[in-house]
Design a protein around this nucleic acid. Structure first.
Lengths: 243, 243
DNA sequence: ATTATAATACTTGTATACAAGTGTACTTGA
DNA sequence: TCAAGTACACTTGTATACAAGTATTATAAT
């Protein structure tokens, strides 16, 4: 009944992807959406059968998801951890940590080109909203922050982002899809907040940047609540006595 | 001639490790030591033959090393990136970033148990020095910092550490081995600096902590120079016109 | 009924086989 | 000698096969 749509992850984002990538992305979405509940035990063989592939791409996927901390590899099976509220707050700690670091670098650099690029992405986001394309909006939203981070050319900050990104992306996707249906007016605020971020980079004003980051956090807090609600909707009818 | 020792990575650390883990650790050491030069192209088949295993564990190793940013996976072969001076500075940026974050959490927690644990590790380090055991010393050194980071129970800060750790470990191993031979007197300073770190945690004094981190950085700067020298020693006789 | 032991149905880790694609080198043509 | 095209060697990604180990279940003995 919840399988009206076969896959949660946008198929168009996987045009050139390998089977391993597909399994990774889809499995991640199913875990973060709560469709696969935390505590569940995943078997390579079973997943391979489910996705209609061999164990090789499944193994690859499990290794990646383990490194993203949403599953835990044990001797017998992979245990689903999922994305608790605590964990989301932790992700956000790290985002604030690295984006603050990036900003400190940016104030010493010429940011004209970056500001231009960000403005373009922001326009794209506006168009996505206009045409109610939640997936495209999510893509541009993630790209916005990635563009900022990439601009300082720091391989280990980028490494952190690369580890965070997939989970963030999945999360934002799910959240935006539900928001487009129910809280359409939120998007004006999100757009304004991103514009504020651009202004902070343009003027190299730390206070504005902090303000923007903080508001972004509030925004995302909203996302979190949306998602937990969505998860509760999904995971109904399963056992309830779970201390 | 440079193959007097078959493996760079301590065999005793791999007692329960899989073939994939062994290849990963050893390959990492060979890359960071400069034994495999940056720019080299690695083939799965060739590596499998070299290590006497199949492609499966080799693939696993390459995926991991790519996520650690010391190789780059391309369509035809994996390109060795290695550990440049810039990259090492970047790793250190991240270490300072997360250890500062951790310290801010620690000042709000009861650190008695942690201080005890760190003192024990410090004693172990002293013994390692006394018996000239560079590998054991490196192990305890890494463990020292890992213990601090684990103490705040933050899964995504830990994730960052998990990504940094292997490269750090390899680096420290190589550096300490050469130091035990040539700069034995340095170890008193390292011990003192770690004691300073413990004091900072005990008294929750930010200034001492920053001082300690800074001195640790200076120490490591020394390590970097040692390592570049060692690398230059190793990679002699190969082509020189490398702009 | 309960405990100990043995069979079996899983698990992961590794090896091997195969398919599709890419770059290189050689051959063939002028 | 040079250019174009073709064959070949080598690449990754995936499927499959096998081995070693673990948990569970069934069986047998007390």
């Amino acid at each position: 009944m919840a399988e009206s749509k076969e896959f949660l992850y946008p198929a168009k984002w996987l045009s050139k992807a390998s089977a391993g990538d597909r399994v990774t992305s889809e499995l991640r979405m199913r875990i973060i959406s709560g469709m696969i509940e935390s505590g569940a035990i995943l078997s390579e063989n079973k997943l391979a059968a489910d996705f209609g592939v061999s164990r090789s791409p499944v193994r690859e996927a499990l290794k990646i998801l383990a490194s993203e901390n949403i599953i835990r590899l044990e001797r017998m099976g992979a245990v689903v951890i999922g994305l608790t509220e605590k964990k989301y707050a932790e992700i956000y700690d790290v985002r604030i940590l690295i984006e603050t670091f990036v900003f400190e670098r940016l104030v010493r650099l010429n940011t004209n080109e970056l500001v231009m690029e960000l403005s373009k992405i922001l326009e794209m986001m506006k168009v996505s909203i206009k045409y109610l394309d939640a997936d495209e909006f999510s893509y541009q939203d993630v790209l916005f922050h990635e563009t900022i981070i990439r601009s300082i050319d720091h391989s280990y900050i980028l490494m952190i982002w690369d580890n965070l990104k997939p989970v963030m992306e999945s999360f934002i996707l799910l959240s935006m899809r539900s928001r487009f249906k129910e809280k359409y007016e939120d998007f004006t605020r999100i757009i304004n907040n991103h514009q504020l971020y651009i202004d902070a980079i343009k003027t190299k004003d730390r206070d504005i940047m902090i303000k923007s980051l903080h508001e972004n956090f509030d925004d995302v807090q909203g996302k979190v609540e949306d998602l937990w609600m969505a998860q509760q909707m999904l995971s109904k009818g399963v056992e309830q006595e779970n201390d």
